[in-house]
Every structure is written in C-alpha cells, then in structure tokens.
C-alpha cells in the first residue's frame, strides 16, 4: 500500500478517477470493456492489497461470479435461443446465460474497484473533498471516525470490568450473554454521552460556530496532478464518445447483437484500457524511476 504512488496524488484526482472507473464499469457491458475492467481492477487490487487480495479474490469472488452467473437465467427468460426448459416450465435461454456471465463479471469488477477505493480514498481525503461543500457533515464524519476506535477500546475496558464482577459476555446461556452484552453497550452509551459534553465545550472554546469557518487541508494540487487530470479527461472524453456512438454496449435480448468493430472502436478500447490502468502505469513509472536513481548511486 505504501508503494502505491497514485494514492499520493491529489484527492480530487483520486476521486475523479474512481468515480469514472466505477461508473464506466457499471455501465458498459461490452465484452471487451468487461474484460478490461475486470483485469485492471484485479491487478490494481493486488498491487494495493498484496497477497491477501489474491486469496480473497479467488476464495470469495470466484464462487460469487458463478453464483451471479447462474442466478440470472433462473429468473430471466428473455432471449430467443431456448436451450431447455426448467421444471416449472420456464425456458432457459442462451442469451440469459451470457447476460448472467456478463452481469457477474461486471459485479465482480465493481467489488474489486471498491476494494481499491477503500485502500486509496481514505477518510481524510473524503473529508477534504467534501469539507467545503458539506462542512458540518464532514466534521461529524471526522468526529465519528475519532470516536469509533475510542468506543471500541472502551467497550473492551467495560467488558473486562464487567467480567471482574462476574458478568461475563462469554459465559452463561444465550439470553444471559446477550443481556450482558447490552449492559456493556448501555454503560458505554452513558460514558460516551457524558464525556462528549466536554468535547462540545472544547469545540465551542475553539470557536466552532463562528461565521466564516474555513477548511484547512494538507493536500496540494501540483503539476503532476494537473497532468494526470488532463490525461484522464482526454481518455474519458474518448470513452464517452464511444458510448455516444453505441460502441461500448451490446444488446442481449432478444438476440445478442454486438456493435460493428472498426478503427474508432480500437481507439475507444485503448482509451478505456489506459484510463483503467492509470494508477498501475503511475506506479510502474515510479518504480522504474527509482531503479534508475539507485543504479546511479
């Protein structure tokens, strides 16, 4: 994760990229597009999360892919190529099976992109991006993120304390346990609310509520951010052009119909591929640069 250079770009760059990539992979069902988004999301998730991601992807996402692929033909009976009939008399069609596979690939790609999103778009970037638009809610978000770890620690302390007066969550029958669990939650609530009075005091004392509050950020919009954003915009424009001329989607029902491939479709595929690959390209370029610098030392 530390070696991911794309994460160090300006949050706006990160956010624009993730939003487009997510939306595009949810929209475009063309096989080439699906292959591109599935491959790129898989590679980037491994770059970000390492071996853990490989294991997770294979262990959970692969079965999920089959499940989603199978569930679709069970309910979707459109399409003209009927393969066989189910027991209840409904037909299973080739089109619905292919659509199921496509939908599954898309779904997995979205999940993978989100796993990358979770690693890159940390809460502080989100708070920065929305700090100006929705300052109060962003601050609440920051406060909740501050409180949650604190409350989790406090739950542990209270649980131990309760254990020491013979009220253990881990012993007794289900009802007893759940009751003790809720006791802990209840003690925690009082503690949290009472202590938060001082938090409110501390906010007031530091002038929260004065008109004209600004939003400080540690992020800088550098030249490289500008360059990256520019490239992104160009690539996005090309992909959107493809969408406008109907190159990015296929028709599944009643029969499968793909748009005719031509020179411009190659360009559009490449644009989408490079767009999806931006973080990986940036990471690789950085890697090469460092190898070069090291070799000179």
């Amino acid at each position: 994760m530390d070696k991911d250079v794309f994460s160090s770009f300006h949050p706006l760059v990160n956010f624009v990229w993730f939003t487009t990539v997510l939306l595009f992979s949810m929209f475009f069902m063309h096989p080439v597009f699906l292959t591109i988004s599935l491959t790129c999301s898989f590679v980037y998730s491994v770059v970000l999360n390492g071996k853990k991601a490989v294991r997770f992807n294979l262990l959970y996402l692969l079965p999920l892919l089959f499940f989603v692929a199978l569930i679709n033909p069970a309910f979707n009976h459109a399409g003209e190529t009927i393969l066989f009939y189910l027991k209840n008399g409904n037909p299973v069609t080739l089109e619905s099976i292919i659509y199921g596979i496509a939908a599954a690939a898309m779904f997995i790609a979205v999940i993978l992109w989100f796993s990358c999103y979770n690693a890159v778009m940390t809460s502080d970037k989100f708070i920065y991006l929305f700090g100006r638009v929705i300052p109060a809610l962003s601050l609440i978000l920051s406060m909740v993120l501050r409180f949650v770890p604190r409350y989790k620690a406090q739950i542990k302390i209270i649980a131990n304390t309760q254990k020491c007066i013979g009220r253990d969550v881990a012993s007794g029958n289900f009802f007893r346990r759940a009751h003790n669990g809720i006791r802990i939650l209840s003690i925690m609530t009082t503690w949290a609310l009472e202590n938060a009075i001082e938090t409110a005091d501390s906010m007031k004392s530091r002038g929260y509520g004065l008109p004209g509050r600004t939003s400080f950020s540690i992020f800088r919009f550098d030249k490289r951010d500008k360059t990256a954003l520019l490239f992104m915009v160009i690539l996005i424009a090309i992909v959107l052009y493809g969408a406008a001329i109907g190159q990015n989607n296929i028709r599944f029902f009643p029969s499968i119909k793909m748009p005719v491939m031509n020179g411009s479709s190659i360009l559009i595929y490449c644009a989408y591929f490079f767009l999806s690959l931006i973080p990986i390209i940036i990471d690789a370029a950085e890697e090469i640069k460092w190898k070069h610098i090291r070799s000179r030392i």
């Binding site: 809460s123 502080d124 708070i127 601050l139 920051s142 406060m143 993120l145 501050r146 604190r150 202590n195 938060a196 001082e198 938090t199 005091d201 501390s202 906010m203 004392s205 530091r206 002038g207 929260y208 509520g209 004065l210 008109p211 004209g212 509050r213 600004t214 939003s215 400080f216 950020s217 540690i218």
Partner: peptide, 29 residues
C-alpha cells in the same frame, strides 16, 4: 485546556486537530 485529554480531541487526525481553532476563526490555508 480542559481536564480530560481524550474528551477534548474532536477530529481523527493530528493535523486537523491542530488546525481546528484556526479554521473556526476563518484563516486561510
């Protein structure tokens, strides 16, 4: 400065906490 160190901290990042009062006062970045 109040008594309990934990209760006074509002945000989740050190940098944000340091800037909190200045943000309220409306200083620029």
């Amino acid at each position: 400065v109040l008594q309990n160190p934990d209760n006074q901290i509002v945000t989740d990042k050190v940098w944000h906490e340091l800037a909190f009062g200045l943000e309220s006062l409306g200083y620029d970045n």
